[in-house]
Structures are given as C-alpha cells and as structure tokens.
Write a protein that binds this DNA or RNA. Structure first.
Length: 873
RNA sequence: GGGGUGUUAGCUCAGCUGGUUCAGAGCACCUGCCUUACAAGCAGGGGGUCACUGGUUCGAAUCCAGUACGCCCCA
C-alpha cells in the first residue's frame, strides 16, 4: 500500500488552510435565509505573540464556529487586535532607546509615527500564528482598535457619555505608576505579599512632655501628615481627644481626630493620616475636612512640599528618614511584617496612591442592567459559578478612571479654553463653536484651544468591540450590525471578566439596548504539569508553533481540549498533545484500512448485525455529543467522539467487518462503512479540521465545493437501544474469552470452541459470526446442561463454556468459582436485606423496588449456576 | 478579615433531579503480543472507606452543619 502508516500533518495543513481561504469558506455575509452565528475574538494585544492561553482560547472558538458552519448557520468569526496602550508604548519607547532616541525629545506626532511603524512591522504576527492553528476567522473583517473607524467610535462614545453626564473630570486618588508616569485603573494593579518593616514613631504632644506612638510602613510619608486619628472608643487615648501633636522633623502642628474606622488592634491603635498618599486616609481627610499635602512628584521623587529630601527617590528617602528618626530618638522600634503592596501590571513599579486630575466614567447606572442580565441568565456564564463573583464586583463597582498619561491611544476630545474651562467635542471645529458659546467670546480661534494631552484607557476601546467591529457606531443601522449583533458566544479568560466582559455588557445595553452576546465561555489558565502558571520568566511554556510543528495542529488542538473543562485550569502536559497526535494516527490508519479494500460486488453482505449496531451506536453517541456541546462541555464532547472513534468504530466495528487478509469486501458493507467514516469525520472536524478534511477528500472524489468544512453536520436520530445492549453483552463475552486465553496462555491463533447454555430469553443467532471472528472461535453450540472439562463464565444471565480438553487446573478453577460464589452471595445478601426492610419497600418508588427484585433473581440464578459448575468439577 | 468555590484511582477530571450509567473516563501502571490498518499499535488486567466528623433519609459521593486543607475574588 502506498499510503504512509503514519499521518504526516505538515504539508497537509498548509494545503487545506490555503484551500479553505481560496474558496472563501471563512468569509461571511449577512444572509437572511440563514441563522447567524457570531463570535468576536477577544482581541489579543497587538504586541503579543501566541502563547498557550491563546491556543486554548482560540481552539475553543474555532471548534464552536466550525460546528456552527456545518450546522448551516451563517458563521462569522471576527478577528483583530487591540492597541494595548501602555504595553505598546513601552515597547516603542524601548525601541527608540535602542536607536538612541529619547521619547522626551520627540513631539507627539513624531512619536506616533514611530509607534505606527512598530505596529505595522510586528502587529500582525499573532494573527498569522492563529492561522497555523487552523483558526477559521473571516480575515477580511480583521479590525484594530486604533484604526480610524474604531477610534472615531471611541471619541463618539466619549462625547456621548460626557453629554449624558456619565463622564467627569476630577481630582481623585488614583493608582499612579511612577515609572510609566501614568494613572492606572484599579484592575491594572496587582497586589503582592511582600516583607516590609513597621516603624514605630513618637510624635510630641503639644503642650506636654508626653509622646504618642504611631506605626507606619512608610515613614517618608510623615512629611505629608495632616492628622493623627484614634478610635473614639479607645480608652488609652481618651485623654488626648482635641489635642494636637507635632510632626517629627518638620514640627508641623496637626490635630488628633477620632474615627471608628481605626483598628484598635493594629500597631498602636494610632493612625497617621496622610490624605494625599493613601486611599483610606484620603477618605478620612474628606470626612474630617483635612488638608492634603502632596509630597511626591510624578516620577516618585519627593516634591518641594515635603520640605525635606526634595528631589530624592521615595525608597531612598525611606531609608534615610528612618536613620534620621532613629538618630533623633524618635524611632521607638521596628518590626518585620508582611503586607500587601500594589504593583503596576505593566511596569511592575510599586503603585503610588496619588491625587491627580483624571477623567472618570460613572459606573453605577450602566452597571445595573449589566448585572441584571447576567443574574437573570439573559447572558449565561459557563460555568455559572462565576455569577457570584460577577455580582459582587458589580455591586461594589467604582467609577472607572479612563485617562492615561500616554500618547499611544485615542486622545481625549476635551479642549481647554484660555481661562482653564473646557469643552468636549468630536472635532476642534465643533469645540471652537462650543467654546465661543460657552465663553461668549466670538474672537476665539482654534489655536486658542488646547486639547487634553492624555489618551483613553485601551479598555475604553475594547468595551465597544462587539459593536464597533460591525461599524455599529459609524452606521448604527447597517446590515452587518443588524444581522450579527447580538453575537452568540464569547470565549475568554476569567481574569478579564470585569476588565472587559462586564464593560462590554454595559456598552451593549447603553449603545444598542441589547446584550453583546448570549453566552460567555470562561476558559481556565494554562499551567504546567506542576500547576505553575506558564510564564516567560519561568520558561515553563512550550512554544505553540514548535508544538504544532512536532505534533500537528490537530494533535495540539485535541491535546489542549482533552483536559480542559470550562472554567478549570488546564494542567498542560506534552503527553496530552502526544495523545492528540496518536489519535490523529489512529484515524489515519482506520482510513488506510478502509481505503485498501477491494470491492467485490457479487459478494453477499455478512455484516448486517454489525452495520445495524454501529448505526445505532453512532446515533446514541451523537445525541450525547450534541448534549455536551449545548452545555458547553467541549472537553466531554471531544472525549465522547474519541471513544466513539477508537473503541466503537476501530476496535469493535472495523474488526467485525474486516475481511480476511487480501479478501475483497462486499458492496453493502463498504458503502455503509464509508458512510460511517464520513459521519465520524464530520463529528470530528471541529476538533481536528486538517486531518478530517484530508481523509474526506482521499476517501472519495469530491465536487468543487464539496468540502468537509461546509458539509452538513449530522442530525440527531433515533437508535435501537436493544441492539446496543445485546452487542454490549456480546462484547463482554468476547472479552471474557480473550481473558481466558490470556490467563491460560492460549495463543491468539489457536481456535477454541464455545458452548452456550441459554437460561434467558436472549438470542445469540445474529451475533455468532461476530463472536467467532473476534474471539477466534471454531464452533459454537448450544447446550442444556453444564459442560464438563470446561472453563465457564456467566454473562447477561447465560452461561458460557470453553472446553479445555483436559487442560483444566481443577484446584485453580475451584478457587476462582468459590471466590465468585462468595461475592455473589454477599451481593444477594445485601439486596435481600434491602428488600426485607419494610420501610424501604413502602418508601421507595416502584421502579427501584422492581430493580432490586431483578437483582435478587439474577443473583440467585448466578449462584445456582456457579454451584452446579463447582459440582461438575 | 469578608465572600465564593473545591477536595472522588498514582495524575487530570466526569458523576445533572439522592436509588442500574454508582463507584466511572482518559492518561499512567502491570501482563502477554512485531496477529499485514495502526508498537504513535493490539488483547487482557490490577487500582478508590468518594477529605474528616456528625446530621437528615428506608437509602448519601450526591442534601445539611461543622472541621481540615487547597484555590479564586474582594479588603
């Protein structure tokens, strides 16, 4: 035979991907005669390269979209990338540095030119990598969050929300990244446990020689202190209420205030209040009308308001000031503690809570419908355990800081007048008009206005993604948006459930009055075999493209899905991918076998039972597979196909119908078998698209557009439960015979005889040839009595004998039978006990009791049979 | 500290509405096979007090409470 015994994915994958592309199978257009099925890709970071998380995520999306396509839906998977402002800007800055260029020396326009240059060069990499995986995206629809239309949408939305009063500008405590020199949203801050020191400092009480001790992890911030706070119920400090103390080193007089917020147990129970540098202190400050003293510059050095150590880095100052305090006898003691410190997700710098002027988007009004839609299952989360988390987040939502002190992104459309007031408008011209109206000054020119320097958070683009990719802002009634929106399923990671998913839902209701999608499938995190998160720094992540090279895209796809139930982390092991590859090979060889048969049209069909059985078995399995799909149990769906193919189709069915070596096969069997293989390929195609398409075409001549990728998905059909059960018993009989061979060291090629004592209504007539073939039996006969000199076993209530021609080890056989007898008696006993319990008989449903009675009768029959066998030994 | 969620075979996990799918699957493991589709394979097999304690029930892996340990989110 000329077909290789091993499946070789390399050229095959490229061939079919190109072929699909050429024929436009991935493309989608609104088609009123078809039901739309839409997925928008979670846009990967434009700076990114494919990692294992993307592999899992996009494999699942591809499985969903391919199945929908085969189901005859108008399947549309929209790809694209997002501009990832901080990450990309950091990469561009690094690139410039390499070329000896400092960002500070560039104008905004020059910098953006470099940024686009960078994006054009590296921005498409990740999408090309997805093609290797087999992703069947409609590439003609590829979008980018910074392209003109999507940027216009962002600006339009900003202006709209501003006019609705949802966007405001204000001084607020924000998470400041002193390295990136930008504000971050709460979600971009990662808290880590670190070892710190707790410094105990003595503050002099004014008008007294006494001191008061406070504890702080950040002694440098005392320079910004504006009060000391104690719990009003704290007996220790009652005598100090209303007094003032002096801040050490600078001797500023600050009041002692009281608030129940203070934890009496922590430190000394005295809290220093630094409203400019701590969120809780800030809120205390507002409540008690305290001044804020901002002692830090944007780059994390001390400002002149600090009075001391001006211009020095915050961490350097911490050490220096601790030393100075110690020398001056102010430092009482130092303790080691661990506390949570926030770090920038992007630059890893320690976050500085900082007061600054930022733009905010109000969340409460928009959060309401977004929360309800998930709680009431208009949008379903899979698995639903994430609903709780979602709710608690939405209930405690805070306003969204949307401004970023960067250049790479959509510039905030606010224009400042010479007097410091501002207007918000989509264009400078429109702004001028508004500004003239607002100021009453008709002499104002565009050049008098100054646009805000900041850009918008990237998520302020991506929350519009399901709408903006269909140009739903530019042209709200266009055909695409009307047809594809709401999209169907979103596949993403739980980490961005709030960042992104929740905000998309808000935007959906705000701008389209409809949810952006119906189902959210949450994948897990891909971890290594030890359970560690895969990361570049650990070096524990395989390169996905290497894996594809080694095992084939189909093998990798299957491997990823073998062990990844929704919402559960995937402990990735290369073994899984190996299993995927082995599976590819298994199917390949099944195909080789079928392809290799000569057909003799004159032969009668000896395989009616096998054919009838597999047909039913396929339908049974397919119903289950569909059920898994409907419940988003993708892993289970794959495993069900896997078992259907390997166990039922290959190990059982093909062995049943396989003609003897070099013998031809009859027409009816080959036709049925090819049909079965086609159905199996269909069910398998979403998971393993390349291999299945290849076999599809090798199996038969196909017409120009007759591709598996667009073949009709099988329909759920009825199945004959009885034949499945009968075959089940028959296969157990075969296994029992094989087991006897194994344990008695009887070679496979030695034919045995089989005698059957039927004690039930079972009929084996239709299955005799199958038993003969699979168990290598010479003669099968039926008996009324026990057979002497034979090994026996019971299956489905009937007794089977294999004559051993005197080769029986009587003692061993007696022991085996005795053991089985004992077990069965014990079993009977437990059933009898149940049945003699009056409360069980009265309380349990009829079916359960009938079942127990059947168990009882079966066990009794079995005991009788074993006893007879023992007697005849 | 608050909330959520989990603990089932060596590993990863199914197990829905308590009772024949109740103790399962895949991988790993053990034994025997190079039997012309496949050694990336074939055949067979051994593994579990369902975390622990108590409760509800005729009956609990399944429901309830507590304990221990793990993970996640928030502070």
């Amino acid at each position: 035979m000329s077909i290789s015994t091993k499946y070789n994915p390399k050229e095959i994958e490229k061939k079919w991907y190109d072929s699909w592309m050429q024929r436009g199978f991935f493309r989608s257009k609104p088609n009123p005669n078809k039901e739309p099925y839409t997925i928008v890709i979670p846009p990967p970071n434009v700076t990114g390269v494919l990692h294992m998380g993307h592999m899992l995520n996009n494999t699942i999306q591809d499985v969903l979209i391919r199945r929908a396509r085969m189901q005859g839906k108008e399947a549309c998977w929209v790809p694209g990338t997002d501009h990832a402002s901080i990450a990309t800007e950091a990469k561009v800055v690094a690139m410039l540095k390499e070329r000896g260029i400092n960002k500070k020396d560039l104008t905004r326009e020059d910098f953006l030119k470099y940024a686009w240059e960078w994006k054009d060069k590296y921005g498409g990499i990740i999408l090309d990598q997805l093609k290797k995986l087999g992703a069947s995206c409609d590439w003609d629809r590829t979008r980018f969050t910074m392209e003109d239309d999507l940027s216009a949408a962002v600006i339009e939305v900003f202006v709209d929300l501003y006019r609705k009063g949802h966007i405001y500008r204000g001084v607020r405590m924000v998470n400041w990244d002193p390295q990136g020199k930008t504000a971050l949203s709460d979600e971009e801050v990662i808290y880590k446990q670190v070892n710190s020191k707790l410094y105990y400092l003595n503050y002099q009480i004014e008008g007294s020689d006494d001191t008061l001790t406070i504890a702080t992890t950040r002694p440098e911030t005392i320079l910004g202190d504006t009060a000391i706070c104690v719990n009003p119920n704290d007996e220790r400090y009652k005598h100090l209420h209303g007094k003032t103390v002096l801040v050490p080193l600078i001797n500023r007089s600050i009041p002692i205030i009281t608030d129940e917020y203070v934890d009496m147990e922590f430190g000394t129970g005295c809290l220093k209040v630094t409203p400019a540098h701590d969120l809780n202190d800030y809120e205390l400050g507002i409540k008690h009308k305290l001044p804020s003293i901002d002692i830090l510059n944007d780059d994390g050095t001390l400002s002149d308001k600090a009075l001391l150590y001006v211009g020095e880095n915050r961490f350097v100052v911490r050490k220096k000031i601790a030393k100075e305090l110690e020398e001056k006898g102010i430092l009482a003691k130092v303790e080691d503690i661990t506390n949570n410190v926030g770090f920038s997700e992007r630059t890893d710098a320690v976050i500085e809570p900082k007061l600054s002027m930022q733009w905010f988007c109000k969340m409460d009004a928009m959060a309401k419908p977004a929360m309800e839609s998930v709680m009431e299952d208009q949008i379903k989360l899979h698995p639903p355990k994430f609903k709780n988390m979602y709710r608690s987040w939405m209930e405690n939502i805070r306003d969204w800081c949307i401004s970023r002190q960067l250049w790479w992104g959509q510039r905030i459309p606010a224009f400042y007048l010479p007097d410091g007031s501002f207007v918000v408008a989509t264009t400078a011209e429109e702004a001028l008009e508004l500004a003239r109206k607002q100021s009453g000054n008709n002499e104002l020119q565009v050049s008098d206005l100054h646009q805000d320097e900041d850009v918008l958070d990237t998520w302020f683009s991506s929350w519009l993604w399901p709408i903006s990719v269909f140009d739903g802002f530019k042209d709200p009634d266009n055909k695409d948006i009307l047809y594809y929106y709401p999209t169907n399923d979103l596949v993403t990671a739980p980490e961005i459930l709030f960042f992104w998913v929740a905000r998309m839902i808000m935007a959906g209701y705000e701008f389209r009055k409809e949810p952006p999608f119906r189902n959210v499938y949450l994948t897990g995190i891909v971890r290594d075999a030890q359970g560690r998160k895969m990361s570049k720094s650990l070096g524990n992540s395989p390169d996905p493209l290497d894996l594809i090279e080694q095992y084939g895209a189909d093998g990798v796809r299957a491997g990823m899905l073998f062990s990844s139930p929704a919402g559960n982390d995937l402990l990735f092991d290369e073994k899984l991918v190996e299993q995927g590859r082995n599976f590819s090979n298994k199917i390949w060889n099944a195909f080789r076998l079928i392809k290799g048969w000569e057909v003799d049209e004159t032969l009668p069909c000896p395989n009616e039972t096998a054919i009838k059985w597999f047909e039913s078995r396929f339908n049974e399995a397919f119903v289950q597979i569909e059920d898994h799909f409907e419940k988003f149990r993708i892993s289970d769906a794959l495993l069900a196909v896997y078992k259907l193919v390997w166990d039922d189709f290959c190990s059982s069915y093909l062995e049943m119908i396989k003609p003897a070596y070099q013998q031809p096969i009859d027409k009816q069997t080959i036709d049925a078998t090819v049909g079965f293989l086609e159905n199996v390929l269909k069910a398998l195609h979403p998971f393993m698209p390349f291999l299945t398409e290849e076999i599809w075409h090798d199996l038969k001549e196909r017409k120009e557009k007759e591709f598996l990728i667009v073949a009709a998905w099988p329909k759920k059909d009825t199945f004959d439960k009885e034949i499945i059960e009968q075959m089940d018993s028959v296969l157990k009989v075969i296994a029992a015979i094989r087991n006897i061979r194994n344990s008695k060291n009887i070679p496979n090629n030695k034919q045995l005889d089989l005698l059957i004592k039927v004690m039930t209504q079972n009929s084996y007539d239709a299955f005799l040839s199958i038993i003969r073939k699979l168990a290598n039996i010479n003669e099968i006969s039926f008996v009324e009595d026990n057979v002497e000199g034979a090994i026996s076993f019971i299956e489905a209530g009937d007794e089977f004998f294999i004559p051993m021609a005197g080769n029986i080890d009587v003692a061993a056989e007696r022991e085996r039978l005795t053991k089985e007898l004992e077990y069965t008696k014990g079993f009977l006993n437990s059933v009898a006990k149940k049945l003699s319990n009056e409360r069980f008989v009265n309380g349990a449903p009829e079916a359960v009791i009938a079942n127990e009675r059947k168990k009882q009768a079966d066990a009794e029959a079995k005991i009788k049979a074993i006893e007879q066998s023992l007697a005849s030994l």
